[in-house]
C-alpha cells in the first residue's frame, strides 16, 4: 500500500512539473507571448530601472548581491534570478565608466556570476570591460559574508544595491550599509526571515514571488514572461484546490 501511495505521489509530482513545463512552452511558442504582457506595477523595479540610468549618467556603480545560496539545493533558485538581474544590469550599464560589481557567499555562485559577466560582455562585444574581480566571494558564513560585502557598499561609489538570492537576517546589516551610503536598496529573498527583515530595512522590498518576476519586468526575454504567466495560472489552480480542500474538511468529507 505504501509503495502504491509513494508511486502515486511521484506520478502526481511529475504531472505537476509537466503541467508547468507545458504551460511555459505553450506561452513561449504561441502567439500569446508576442502580445505585450500586462504587468502590474511593482515600484521596486521602476525605481531600479531609473537608478540604473542615473548610475550610468553619474559614473557610479551598481552592486548586485547574490546571497549565499547553494545551487545544489532549493536556495539556488533565488540566486539564478540574481544572475538574470546581473545580466540585465551589465547590459544596461554597458556605457558606464564603472561596471557593476557582484558579491556572493558561495563559491559556485561566484564562478557563475563571473561567467554571466563574461558572456554578457562577450555578447556586447566589449570583452575588455570584463574583470573577474568584479564578481567576488566575500565570506562563507552568514556574518562573514555580510561583513565582507559591507566594505564594497561603502568604498566603491555604489548608487544602487540589488540583493537577489538566499539571505538570512544578516541582510539587515547590508541594507543598513546601503542606507548609510545613501544608495537605493532593492532586495528580495526566498527566505521568510529575510523577507520579514527586508520589509523593515529595505527601500524597496520584493516579497514572495515578486523576486522571481524580475526577469519579466527587466525584459530578460520571452521565457521569463511565459514562466510568469505559468506561475499566475498554477497559483490560481492551487488556490482553488486549497479552498476546495478546506471546504471538504469543514464538511468532514475529508479526514
Amino acid at each position: 500500500m505504501d509503495q502504491v501511495l509513494s508511486l502515486l505521489n511521484s506520478i502526481l509530482g511529475l504531472l505537476f512539473i509537466l503541467l508547468c513545463l507545458g504551460l511555459i512552452l505553450f506561452y513561449l511558442l504561441s502567439d500569446h507571448s508576442r502580445a505585450k504582457l500586462n504587468l502590474r506595477g511593482i515600484q521596486a523595479f521602476s525605481h531600479f530601472k531609473r537608478e540604473v540610468d542615473l548610475a550610468v549618467e553619474a559614473g557610479k556603480r551598481l552592486h548586485i548581491s547574490l546571497g549565499r545560496g547553494n545551487i545544489n539545493d532549493l536556495q539556488g533558485g533565488a540566486a539564478f534570478i540574481g544572475l538574470t538581474i546581473l545580466d540585465r544590469c551589465a547590459r544596461a550599464a554597458s556605457n558606464s565608466d564603472r561596471p557593476p560589481v557582484t558579491t556572493s557567499g558561495d563559491g559556485v555562485i561566484t564562478i557563475l556570476s563571473q561567467d554571466t559577466l563574461r558572456s554578457t560582455y562577450r555578447s556586447l562585444g566589449t570583452m575588455e570591460r570584463y574583470d573577474p574581480t568584479n564578481a567576488r566571494l566575500t565570506g562563507l558564513t552568514p556574518m562573514a559574508y555580510a561583513a565582507g560585502a559591507m566594505p564594497t557598499i561603502h568604498d566603491e561609489q555604489i548608487s544602487a544595491n540589488i540583493f537577489a538570492g538566499h539571505f538570512g537576517t544578516e541582510i539587515a546589516l547590508l541594507t543598513e550599509a546601503g542606507e548609510r551610503n545613501r544608495s537605493l536598496t532593492v532586495a528580495g529573498s526566498d527566505s521568510l526571515p529575510a523577507q520579514a527583515v527586508l520589509y523593515v530595512t529595505s527601500d524597496e522590498p520584493l516579497l514572495g514571488e515578486e523576486l522571481y518576476a524580475a526577469g519579466a519586468y527587466l525584459g530578460a526575454g520571452a521565457a521569463h514572461s511565459a514562466s510568469l504567466r505559468m506561475q499566475d495560472i498554477v497559483r490560481w489552480v492551487l488556490v482553488v484546490a486549497i479552498v476546495i480542500g478546506a471546504i471538504l474538511k469543514l464538511l468532514r468529507i475529508l479526514p
Binding site: I17, C20, L21, I24, L25, L28, L74, G77, A78, F80, I81, L83, T84, L112, D115, T116, D190, G208, E209, E210, L211, Y212, A213, G215, G221, A223, H224, S227, L228, M230, Q231, V234, R235, L238
Partner: peptide, 21 residues
C-alpha cells in the same frame, strides 16, 4: 507558495535551456 512556484519556473527555464546561467 509564490517562492515555490518561482523556483519551479526558474528550474524549468534552465532545464529547457532557455535560461543559461
Amino acid at each position: 507558495l509564490g517562492v515555490a512556484l518561482g523556483t519551479v519556473a526558474t528550474g524549468l527555464r534552465i532545464l529547457i535551456g532557455v535560461d543559461r546561467p
